[in-house]
Structure formats: C-alpha cells, structure tokens
C-alpha cells in the first residue's frame, strides 16, 4: 500500500534522464539495460542511440531539460569524450546536470574522470539497483 502511494507521488514529477552513447562503439546492450531499469523505476528516460558526438548529447540534454546524463562507452575513449560532454553541458549553461558513466572504465581513470566533473562511474557487474538507487538519491538531493 505504502509502495503504491510512493509511486503515485513520484508520478507527479518524474525525473528526466538522458542516456547516451558517445563515440564509435556500437555495443548498446548495456545502455538499453540501464534505460529499461530506469524506466521501470519511474524515470522518464530519453535514449538517443549509438554514435553520438558530445555536441549532440549536450544539445539533446538542453532541449529535453534533463536532470542527469548517463554515458555508456566501451571503446576506451572515455577520457576524451566524458569530460568533453561535461564541458559542453556547462557551456550550454546546464550547470547542475549530473553526469554519470558506465562501461569498460579502468579503476585508475575513475578518479581522474571525477575530477573533471563526472559524478559517478559504474563498472561491469554493477547491480542495477545500485545505479537506480544512486540516481534517485542524487536527484532527490538536488531538488
């Protein structure tokens, strides 16, 4: 019963999230799994497909007024592309959009990415509930 009420409450203003795949790898299974998990957790998720440039991602985030942008990348180009997305988002005036990422990201890169504005990075095998929980908490705090 309590659960149903919670859902109805969050129904009033669901969080909007953009999930995007920057760069050239076409492995979008992970991104789709995240989209599905977030949808089932009550988020409104915009998915723009593979092979997005950082410019396209920032532009879509701007038009969609999202609270967070999730980046999935498995090609190894994360050190270039993730910070570039952050930079362009900030340039568009989206100061408080939370950027998080996932994919094949070596541990030693995670702290470097965080220093460049990436809020959180999830590696392979992360339970979906951790990602959903992180995002929910992070966005509630923001509101």
């Amino acid at each position: 019963m309590v659960k149903v009420e919670n859902i109805q409450e969050s129904n009033l203003r669901p969080h909007r999230v953009l999930i995007a795949k920057p760069g050239l790898d076409g492995h979008d299974r992970g991104a789709k799994v995240i989209v599905r998990a977030l949808r089932d957790a009550g988020f409104e998720v915009i998915y723009t497909g593979i092979r997005q440039t950082p410019e396209m991602i920032a532009r879509a985030a701007l038009q969609e007024d999202v609270s967070a942008v999730g980046l999935s990348l498995l090609s190894g180009a994360h050190m270039t592309l993730f910070p570039e997305v952050v930079r362009l988002l900030r340039k568009e005036g989206l100061e408080d959009v939370v950027v998080f990422g996932g994919g094949i990201i070596p541990d030693e890169d995670v702290s470097k990415l965080k220093k460049q504005g990436v809020d959180q990075v999830f590696g392979p095998g992360t339970p979906l509930s951790s990602i959903v929980g992180y995002l929910r908490e992070r966005l509630e705090k923001k509101q």
């Binding site: 859902i7 109805q8 969050s10 129904n11 669901p14 989209v35 599905r36 977030l38 949808r39 089932d40 957790a41 009550g42 988020f43 409104e44 998720v45 915009i46 998915y47 723009t48 497909g49 410019e55 396209m56 532009r59 879509a60 038009q63 969609e64």
Partner: peptide, 30 residues
C-alpha cells in the same frame, strides 16, 4: 507512453530525428 505501473517512460523518438540536432531553427522535445 508512460508506464501505468512505474510511471516511468522510455522516450525513443529522438533516435530517428538526429539530423536536426545542431540546427537552431528546430526544437524537439520528448
């Protein structure tokens, strides 16, 4: 559509409308 169960939604229409993303004369909202 929004899910009647979770209230969440998968908005995928932009995927087919990529070519106008850098055009400032076009505004698309899901």
């Amino acid at each position: 559509p929004s899910s009647p169960i979770s209230g969440g939604s998968f908005l995928g229409d932009r995927l087919r409308i990529q070519e106008h993303i850098s055009d400032t004369g076009v505004f698309i909202r899901s």
